[in-house]
Write a protein that binds this DNA or RNA. Structure first.
Length: 276
DNA sequence: CGTTGAACCTGTTTGC
DNA sequence: TGCAAACAGGTTCAAC
């Protein structure tokens, strides 16, 4: 579930509280939670967390030691969390990694992930660049409108699939794709190359507005998302369509929200959302 | 190239 | 009331 706004909320707390801290040691419960570079694990002991960034829905820690630097990429998947020391959690058995810190307001940072859809990557600069180029598309918050529009006009598939394609635009998942399309008044099955310029500009503006608004709310907490200090988000209170099958469209058109079961369930209003 | 579906997972919700 | 099946979904991979 963590999509861009949730990961951004996690990022902001991490930057505030663990940036510049030295790693004392790292404990790993299940080895297979480290997808790549498990043999690099000892290197990180004594390294300094020099920077933390978000790429799409993943978090990138830049770690420095002596002259060298290495990267730690963390996918949250669906149920992944970073938690500060002392934050209560159910199912402690799902804590797969603990980063013990030397100087910080939190002496440890736990990586918890019940469903284990997310993984950790320990990468050198070369491997990170390679992964980055292969996996991440444009950032929805910093992309120029014309670059975004040009990319959509090249796409042939369904618009919702485009928005969720991380290699095109990185960070939007099922919740925000549905919410953005409803607010922009565009059908999830509209095709990008047939939309009018005006509609594309509206889509761009709506995408940024929805994501920014969700970040201010600290993300959406549907089931159990929370930031490292244990706080939930509140953007779910403003959802218009996600998981609202059968309820009346909030635009007041009198139509009920429908759900298409194909492709990760699309929720939409058949009246307000146009194919063109 | 685009699209679809399966696989990976386990806590929660739904249905009988 | 209890149990089993369905569901949730980000990413990767295979197949068409």
């Amino acid at each position: 579930m963590p999509e861009l706004p949730e990961v951004e909320s996690v990022l902001r707390q991490l930057r505030r509280h663990v940036l510049g801290t030295t790693i004392r040691s790292i404990w790993v419960g299940r080895q297979d939670i480290i997808r790549e570079g498990i043999d690099q694990l000892p290197w990180y002991e004594g390294a300094c967390i020099q920077d933390i960034q978000r790429y799409g829905k993943t978090l990138l820690f830049t770690c420095e030691k002596g002259q060298g630097s290495q990267f730690l990429l963390a996918e949250l998947g669906m149920t992944g969390r970073f938690l500060f020391h002392g934050v209560p959690q159910k199912f402690a058995v799902h804590t797969h990694m603990v980063v013990y810190l030397a100087t910080s307001h939190t002496p440890e940072l736990r990586y918890w992930n019940a469903r284990r859809f997310g993984r950790i990557y320990l990468l050198n600069a070369h491997d990170w660049q390679e992964l980055r180029g292969r996996r991440f598309g444009l950032d929805p918050l910093s992309v120029e409108p014309m670059a975004f529009i040009a990319l959509i006009q090249q796409s042939r598939g369904r618009l919702k699939a485009f928005l969720m394609n991380q290699q095109k635009i990185a960070g939007i998942g099922n919740i925000y794709a549905n919410e953005i399309l409803h607010r922009a008044g565009i059908h999830p099955h509209a095709s990008g190359n047939r939309l009018k310029k005006k509609t594309l500009h509206r889509l761009f503006a709506t995408m940024q507005a929805v994501l920014q608004e969700a970040i201010v709310c600290g993300g959406s907490t549907i089931r159990d998302f929370c930031t490292p200090d244990g706080s939930p988000g509140c953007f779910q209170e403003r959802h218009q369509v996600y998981q609202k099958t059968g309820t009346f469209c909030l635009r007041g058109c009198g139509t009920r929200i429908r759900r298409l079961s194909q492709e990760r369930s699309a929720f939409f209003c058949p009246t307000c959302q146009k194919r063109r």
